[in-house]
Design a protein around this nucleic acid. Structure first.
Lengths: 116, 116
DNA sequence: CTCATATTTCGATAAAATTCGAAATATGAG
DNA sequence: CTCATATTTCGAATTTTATCGAAATATGAG
């Protein structure tokens, strides 16, 4: 993941309705949730929620599929993983930035993965 | 870490100059860097950089100390760690969201830590 | 085809973030 | 005290985000 992609993802999550929506989708798992259900559970008008879902989608954090009349959104765990990986590699000095590091040398950097 | 704090931190990192500045500070380690050096290395006017450093500081991601005429900024690894922890706990389904999970059950949730 | 449901797109407005020069503040040197 | 350096704060302009009702699009039922 490059910095521009990371900024897109960080920005997508840096908004309360979007973070809440993403968390709902993470909880919902592979089944996902239809746009209307997300909007209703968060008390946000459908058109506003649609705007936020588009942001998350554009950032690659969620995927969309149609099921009859509903558009079902699902969290993309891979994208989230990539974001966390980026933060750990670029913003934690290359090492897991935990003090009570339970698992310090196990984290493989992107470079190491590419080399393997 | 609660959602509001996480949103602050995510928003602080979701901007190219700020992300770049934070990465410089991570590289610089405990010594940190003076505001002027960051601004110069990123080619950003001092007043603009000052604005961005204030955002990062307000989000708790960096700390400030005065050394003679310079204000030295340093990355706060603990805050970064907390952010990564929040993302892993709340946005990865409670488990490390890695597919090739090197260290899956080792990650302790905030609840587990509080209980211990 | 017509109607109802689910959701997005449009458009206009309001709110927040970004930019950066100029002026103000803080510190130290002579 | 006066001057130079380092940085922030202020103010004003520009750009980006967020909000939400109304209209448009997509799908399926009868």
């Amino acid at each position: 993941m490059n910095a521009d992609t990371a900024i897109q993802a960080l920005g997508a999550l840096a908004q309360d309705h979007r973070l809440a929506a993403f968390r709902l989708l993470v909880q919902a798992g592979a089944d996902g949730l239809p746009a209307g259900a997300i909007a209703e559970r968060l008390g946000v008008p459908a058109s506003s929620m649609s705007f936020h879902l588009a942001q998350l989608s554009h950032a690659g954090l969620i995927a969309q599929r149609r099921q009859s009349r509903s558009l079902i959104y699902t969290a993309d765990y891979g994208a989230m993983n990539a974001l966390v990986g980026f933060l750990m590699e670029n913003c934690c000095g290359g090492v897991a930035c935990t003090t009570d590091s339970a698992c310090p040398p196990q984290i493989q950097t992107e470079k190491e993965r590419n080399a393997a």
